[in-house]
Design a protein around this nucleic acid. Structure first.
Length: 434
RNA sequence: GGAGACGUGUCCGAGCGGUUGAAGGAGCACGAUUGGAAAUCGUGUAUACGUUAAUAGCGUAUCGAGGGUUCGAAUCCCUCCGUCUCCGCCA
């Protein structure tokens, strides 16, 4: 792991908390479908501390003797005897150094691969079937309409076949009014979040380094889901990565919190584990646009912010008149870095079911620890911030939702929702262009 | 791509082999002064880990990262990462 952060102890989980209450940590990992971790961790930790203490004693000895040499030489004496003593220490020190480092690395790797501890408010469950619905908004369109790709292809504005020729599967070409509709959605979401929800618009890099991906938790475990360049940069799987890393390696004055960032970016995902799923249409692509929200908070404010952020995402769907429901993910479905996650699912009449369009997570101090993002809580009190991220919302999927929910069966066209009309250059309805 | 310069604490900025965790500022905190404030003066102000009941003491490490030379390195050498300047090229 290369990066600006120094190897200052073990950060990804608080080792002291694990030491103080190993049973609680084991129980937390059990909710994540993992076996008991604490005994292995604490054994490593104990060995590491032993090696460290022994090493430090030798270092203290060396420092004292070296200082003596300095004094002897200054007063013109012969220091060769003391110098020989110090030299003798060095072999022993090298062995202990190596041992301490090996143990520390091993401990770090172990901890870096463990997911965040879930909030007590997260319901138990095995997989997505055990997620719990919290609320619904809007009336789901009852009539079965064609799926978005059927609509788009019939209009002549969506072309997966040509995209496949140049880029392979899971890419789509949009053109004309449909391409513009995608852009309109992105701009609309950005305008709402910056104008009404207090987020600052950011145009971030789309390529990031290892340590940035480590900071937000994509690495080391989920490398196979990501795209990598020939220079070993990573393509963003989500703007969460750069937006959250904006506070990496910093000590923030609390007066400047909360910080709320939003960005409209492409996202790139290998979808390695999703072979055969959603193969048709734009539901699951290697590349899609998303408007992301990130909040950096004081710890005591992160729970309230989680609710607020989720409302921000719901609001844009409401402004578009899209029926949706909000669910809380169960223990088995909550992502690696999250304490608690709300998903918002939009109604897709083409599938006659709700599909994920946003995911809002409170990561607590998990990412902050990994990227060393802190705030000054008092004169001698520096603590980790809490970070949250949420889609506000996925533009590709919002496009699908608009297409299917605003589909006009009489002519195969798509009505432009009122909220998007200012962005569509006078187009009221998207129709087949001859 | 060619030539050069530089990475020090919350920030700016000295130091260029021996009590340097690091001068001096700024900022911040507390105190004095004030009717109150500004200004001024005084004092204090890094992080991590280990040890510990302890955010008390003590120890160790940390001057971009990693390695090397040395009894001893912020200071010397090597590699990498990053930043800046000039020239060239380019959307």
């Amino acid at each position: 792991m290369r990066g600006p952060q120094k190897n200052q102890g073990i950060k990804m989980h608080d080792i002291k908390t694990i030491r103080d209450n190993p049973d609680a940590f084991d129980a937390a990992m059990k909710r994540r479908k993992l076996g008991a971790q604490s005994s292995d961790i604490l054994k490593l930790d104990e060995e590491r501390r032993g090696a460290q203490t022994a090493l430090q004693e030798l270092q203290a000895q060396r420092n004292a003797e070296s200082q003596k040499i300095g004094e002897i030489k200054k007063s013109g004496g012969d220091a060769s005897e003391v110098m020989a003593q110090v030299t003798a220490l060095k072999n022993e020190m090298a062995i202990l150094e190596e041992r301490e480092r090996t143990l520390a690395d091993s401990l770090s790797q172990h901890l870096a691969a463990l997911p965040n501890v879930l909030s007590a408010a997260v319901p138990d469950g095995a997989d997505e079937n055990d997620n719990v619905e919290l609320r619904r908004w809007g009336d789901p369109r009852a009539d079965k309409v064609p799926e978005h790709f059927e609509i788009g292809e019939a209009l002549g504005l969506m072309d997966a076949e040509t995209a496949a020729k140049m880029s392979g599967s899971r890419f789509t070409i949009l053109s004309g009014a449909l391409a513009r509709l995608e852009r309109a959605l992105g701009m609309f979401f950005l305008d709402v979040h910056t104008g009404e929800h207090g987020y600052t618009e950011v145009s971030p890099p789309l390529l990031v380094k290892d340590h940035a991906m480590f900071g937000t938790g994509q690495l080391p475990k989920f490398a196979e889901d990501q795209f990598r360049t020939t220079r070993d940069d990573w393509l963003l799987p989500t703007a969460e990565v750069p937006l959250t890393n904006m506070v990496a390696e910093s000590i923030i004055e609390p007066a400047t919190l909360p910080r709320r960032y939003t960005a409209f970016t492409p996202c790139f995902r290998q979808e390695a584990g999703a072979a055969g799923r959603d193969t048709r249409g734009m539901i699951r692509q290697h590349q899609f646009y998303k408007v992301e929200m990130v909040s950096v908070m004081l710890p005591e404010e992160s729970e309230a912010e989680h609710e607020r952020m989720t409302r921000c995402a719901e609001t844009v769907l409401e402004k578009l008149g899209l029926a949706h429901r909000t669910i809380v993910l169960c223990s088995g479905d909550t992502g690696f870095g999250a304490i608690r996650t709300y998903d918002i699912e939009v109604w897709l009449p083409g599938q006659q079911r709700y599909r994920e369009i946003s995911s809002c997570s409170n990561c607590g101090d998990f990412q902050a620890r990994r990227m060393n993002a802190r705030y000054r809580a008092g004169e001698k009190d520096i603590r980790f911030v809490h970070t949250l991220n949420g889609s506000g919302v996925a533009v590709g999927r919002a496009l699908i939702a608009v297409m299917e929910n605003y589909y006009d069966p009489s002519d195969g066209g798509i009505f432009v929702p009122d909220a998007l009309k200012p962005y569509m250059g006078g187009v009221q309805k998207i129709l087949k262009t001859a």
